[in-house]
Amino acid sequence: MSKLSKEDVLKLAKLARLELDQSEIEVYRSELSQILEYVEQLQTVNTDDLLPTNQVTGLVNVSRKDKIKNYGYQPHDLLNNVPRVKDDQIQVNRMVE
């Protein structure tokens, strides 16, 4: 199950929104296969009667009052990092025809 094909790599890259060039595809095919083969050693471990661990703090339902709080951020400080701004809005590329 660990051996990835070229098509697998292309599918992963597409799911992950990463454009790869031709030379990268073969490198990742081999490297990812090797890494997956290594982590597959877990398949042989008996984990019957055990539940998965999602987090280790033991905290449950951490919540706060649903109140607006001012943390001192200015909209312009945030917009300063935006690649394309138009009328104080984030401009993105066309999504639909």
């Binding site: 982590v39 984990t47 055990l50 661990t53």
Partner: peptide
């Protein structure tokens, strides 16, 4: 299930 959930369960084993 085969990878992520399995790893989380092995994580429990390690914690124990």
């Amino acid at each position: 299930d085969a990878y992520y959930k399995k790893a989380q369960t092995v994580r429990t084993k390690l914690i124990n």
